[in-house]
Design a protein around this nucleic acid. Structure first.
Lengths: 226, 226
DNA sequence: AGGTACGAAATCGTATACGATCACTATCGC
DNA sequence: GCGATAGTGATCGTATACGATTTCGTACCT
């Protein structure tokens, strides 16, 4: 099950139809029901959710602000595209904010959390055997979420989540993961845990976390080049 | 004149009343007409702008997504607060994204741009004499904007602009700049330019740019402590 | 046959209207 | 006198309605 990464701050006005529409459409985009390029017609969605167009419109504009949909005046909204350039931007940005989030969180990660993260990572290793990319991706998020649990800066965490949601929207379409890379990734996770355990400097941790993300980007670029 | 930092991507649907309301309210927040804590009443703003409440509501929700206003269900919107914690989060995040933006842009900054940036910086030095914080802040943005002109990642640039807008909203209220710090800041600008000119590594440039921002935060923290 | 102009259908954008919710005040009971 | 409660005004949230704009199909002209 792919889950939408929900920000507590944004979930303030839960219960309103606008919020309901927001969550519903977001979920469908993230889990792939609406794939990139899908045309979001206000009237249809409204009827579908049993609300009027006004809250739906509001929800979609909010999703636009998050980069999950693109909007064109008097034409309508479509689920945000699969442009390789956009992928590059998102991955690069994620590399930076994940690096920062990891470094900031590291001093606050206790041994219990490390153990939990390690368990998740071992489960990811399992996934490599009985090839399960969807679960792998989910576990990957879980792994990092554990490290970010006590992140002292919610803004940065928010940026991480936004990046994840964008990637999730793309995942099911063009950007399949590079199998060889997944294996490396698991090893990098373990290395990262050891780095944190050993009380490495913030700089070292940040660099490692950054590379962890950008290596995935590089693997994609290398693959798409040939 | 304080100017709203406008993202070209977001300005897509210009001309619509919703867009007009968005720009208008955003401008008033950034330039300080609506200070933090100001209650944004939909009906009043709508009447004020000569439009109905629906586009205003939409505009305000978009501003909420940018962090410029806070929204409470069935109660209304207020201009986002002056919470020192929020200030810390914003500055810390800015430190990271500005650092990245500077490092990414550095290889693309030519000598002409350097000269322009240097000129702006000298103008900032002038401002220190005939104490003009508002202009100083504007020039500061100009300085960095020149360096970011050819930033290869628009997402990161967008994050920088969002941070600036948040700070602009706070500027006129509690968070006055620390005079001594402003002087240092100008010197750091010059150092940064020389670093770029000398073809320093991305790491070095990033670190310098980061410190440049976080030193301002530290100065504020030191001042507010006593 | 190809291109253009027109018209209809679909969809968007926003005004208006009304029900729902909240804050605030005044009154009542203790 | 003080706390609880009902009433009132203000504001929000959303449904509905209608004008504006775009898109697409069709007929017409060259």
């Amino acid at each position: 099950m792919t889950e939408t990464v929900t920000e507590p701050s944004a979930a303030a006005a839960a219960g309103s139809k606008s919020e309901q529409a927001y969550q519903a459409v977001k979920a469908r985009i993230v889990e792939g029901t609406y794939s990139p390029g899908y045309r979001l017609v206000l009237g249809s969605i409204a009827k579908d959710l049993g609300v009027s167009v006004v809250p739906v419109r509001e929800a979609i504009r909010r999703l636009e602000a998050e980069g999950l949909v693109t909007f064109e005046r008097n034409v309508g909204a479509t689920v945000a595209g699969i442009d390789p350039t956009e992928y590059l931007y998102t991955m690069q940005t994620l590399s930076i904010v994940e690096g920062a989030a990891t470094a900031l969180s590291a001093p606050l990660v206790d041994s219990v959390a490390i153990a939990r993260a390690r368990a998740v990572n071992e489960e990811m290793r399992e996934c490599l055997h009985h090839f399960d990319p969807v679960r792998f991706t989910q576990l990957n998020q879980d792994f990092h979420s554990i490290l970010f649990e006590h992140c002292p800066n919610p803004h940065i965490l928010d940026l991480v989540h936004r990046g994840w949601n964008r990637l999730a929207a793309l995942r099911s379409s063009t950007f399949r993961f590079v199998p060889g890379r997944a294996h490396e990734s698991v090893n990098e996770h373990e290395a990262l845990l050891q780095l944190i355990e050993s009380g490495a400097t913030a700089d070292e941790i940040e660099k490692a976390a950054r590379l962890h993300r950008s290596a995935t980007l590089d693997a994609y670029l290398a693959q798409s080049k040939q």
